[in-house]
């Protein structure tokens, strides 16, 4: 499969990048690690006229401690760097755990934090070659007008299948987004729309530049558990992130988020309320598992049956909550 023809552009600064994005809005795509963009372009899911390589923008790489106010992660930071960052491992362990499960070591060397957050949603009917999609009459997310997953529906259900955003949700992370009119900061929970096709709130002329992990979320015990068939390479078929703060044997604060079972990563509703002030035991963990299973809406976008994936959200949530409480 060949890549579509495009012109490759480079930006040295965020400002330059935004200018190019504005100039070619609608005809340009951002390339970070390229681990998702390149295969998708080969499948002709995107055929942009321009590709903007942002890897030369030095200002948005790396991990920086901001004394007293948390940690800043540049969008170009690779997942390998996150996985091995001492400060993240110590203070925001749920994120390093999640990053370490992404794809395979080689892909983590290439893949970036920004790319993982911006990752396109996935579906068995969508992530296929042009020939394949043509054979099934295309789908609502690309070139067609029907959904094979929920026939008759007009909504796209493609599953958001990145690992780290579930962890970032648990950490109340904020994203810095730069556009023509400057930088804005949004909580990561506001970044996703919940739609399979138009999945993120990012204008065509905007760039994701940084992720902020607030000081208030530091030092939580964190656990990320991922359902996959193989021990490496596979995207999550279900993912659960849990962050718990304890005080005197009780849960002082807690957040639970799930990924890969909805068109967006989502916080588990009611989990925090159920956990705070309690001693976490098996029964409570199981209740959180039930809440998570209720939040999950797995469909046949991915391998394994939806019923099973929902069931695993329940089991993995229970286990993660217990592990976070006991670690």
């Amino acid at each position: 499969m060949s890549l579509p023809q495009f012109q490759l552009l480079f930006a040295q600064t965020t400002q330059e990048a935004v200018e190019l994005l504005t100039k070619y809005a609608g005809k340009i795509r951002v390339l970070a690690g390229g681990t998702d963009l390149i295969p998708s372009m080969q499948q002709k899911l995107f055929e942009p006229d321009y590709v903007l390589d942002i890897r030369r923008i030095a200002e948005i790489g790396g991990i920086r401690e901001l004394p007293g106010s948390g940690v800043e992660i540049g969008a170009l930071t690779t997942l390998t760097m996150i996985e091995h960052s001492e400060v993240l491992r110590r203070r925001y362990p749920v994120l390093t755990e999640a990053a370490a499960t992404v794809a395979s070591p080689l892909l983590r060397n290439m893949g970036t934090m920004g790319g993982n957050i911006c990752l396109d949603t996935r579906c068995l009917w969508y992530n296929q070659s042009l020939t394949w999609r043509q054979a099934c009459g295309f789908c609502i997310k690309k070139d067609g007008d029907l959904c094979h997953v929920a026939p008759g529906g007009t909504k796209c259900w493609a599953a958001f299948s990145a690992d780290t955003p579930a962890a970032l949700l648990c950490l109340n992370a904020e994203l810095e987004i730069v556009g023509p009119s400057g930088a804005r900061r949004v909580p990561i929970s506001d970044f996703y729309t919940g739609l399979g096709d138009n999945y993120r709130r990012l204008q065509a002329n905007e760039l994701l530049t940084r992720v902020f992990l607030p000081e208030a979320s530091a030092d939580y015990r964190g656990v990320y558990r991922k359902l996959r068939i193989r021990g490496s390479i596979d995207y999550p078929l279900a993912g659960v992130a849990v962050a718990v703060k304890r005080s005197n044997g009780r849960c002082a604060d807690a957040r639970v988020a799930i990924t890969a079972v909805n068109p967006a990563p989502v916080m588990v509703k009611g989990a925090r309320e159920a956990l705070v002030g309690e001693v976490i035991d098996e029964a409570l963990a199981e209740r959180i598992g039930d809440l998570a299973a209720k939040t999950a809406k797995p469909l046949t976008t991915s391998a394994l049956t939806p019923e099973y994936r929902r069931e695993m959200i329940r089991v993995f949530t229970k286990r993660s909550v217990l592990a976070a409480a006991q670690s």
Partner: peptide, 18 residues
């Protein structure tokens, strides 16, 4: 008649991990 997993990502030969 559509092969849903015509690639080595979705057709899962074991990786070295397992």
């Amino acid at each position: 008649g559509m092969l849903m997993n015509p690639g080595l990502l979705e057709y899962r030969s074991p990786s070295s991990v397992e």
